[in-house]
Design a protein around this nucleic acid. Structure first.
Lengths: 144, 144
DNA sequence: GTCGCTGCAAAGTATTTGCATAGCC
DNA sequence: GGCTATGCAAATACTTTGCAGCGAC
């Protein structure tokens, strides 16, 4: 997974065109902003990160764009269970940890084995695409 | 895990007293309502299920009660990523499937292997308590 | 030039908070 | 009787929708 801006831009343009979608400055800047943050962020955080380059960027556009990125396989949606939905520029299958005290969400360096869950989904007639693993508990800072 | 109402009531009363919390009719009825539904439900659904037995039951009370149940280990919180948070009376570690088209959330008969994720959490200094596995994709009905 | 994308405003849904009253222990 | 839980109302947070003008192709 390259984080070189040019490579990212090119991949974005390519995937957009493959679907007949347009390459707009908002989409380019938002992808860069999310990757520069380098971590899962809420729509509002992404908007702030892109604020200087795109003054007046509206939140509905950010939501629409992030949803599009997810369709394109460029980001992963992380449902933390409280607070805003997070969008993660890392698309490899890693788990997340959420502190029930402070609400902070961090990455875990674990590649969860999703085969069992995928198989169960297929057995039930579904078509599994993504698997999200969320560990809840007390984070290092909140453990007292 | 017994679903006998009396057993459930007794377990609830026991755990409440162990924490010095009170046994109220709302708490008893809400636990029964959730178990009678027999599936993950939103706060609003639980309120409707208890409506006839507790007219005038307020939604804030339902939220507070379900949060308390989670602390007591009687329900699991399921963050579906869109729509309301769901509360699941099944406390064994099973995975969930969420359809990205219709939004329906169903149980999967898979006991995900959470050891890797738990270990990674501990390695990061956190104290892992619960692990939630959510599979996303198209459900049987939406696959066309 | 066409048609999709954006910005704006507004609505809609989900959840939390503050405070007075009621009721368990 | 003390102190917690509840109900009510309001506020807040998050996200989606509808529409008019702009801009990529």
């Amino acid at each position: 997974m390259s984080s070189d801006p040019d490579t990212l831009d090119r991949m974005l343009a390519e995937r957009l065109r493959a679907r007949g979608r347009r390459v707009t400055s908002q989409r380019v800047v938002l992808q860069r902003a999310l990757h520069e943050l380098g971590r899962h962020a809420s729509a509002e955080e992404v908007r702030r990160a892109a604020e200087d380059r795109l003054p007046g960027l509206s939140l509905p556009t950010v939501y629409a764009t992030l949803e599009l990125f997810e369709e394109l396989g460029l980001v992963r949606r992380v449902a933390a269970g409280a607070g805003p939905v997070l969008y993660d520029p890392r698309t490899d299958g890693h788990a997340h940890f959420r502190c029930r005290a402070c609400g902070a969400v961090t990455d875990l360096d674990a590649r969860p084995d999703a085969t069992a869950a995928r198989r169960a989904a297929r057995r039930a007639g579904h078509d599994p695409e993504a698997v999200e693993v969320l560990v809840g508990g007390l984070c290092a800072a909140c453990r007292v």
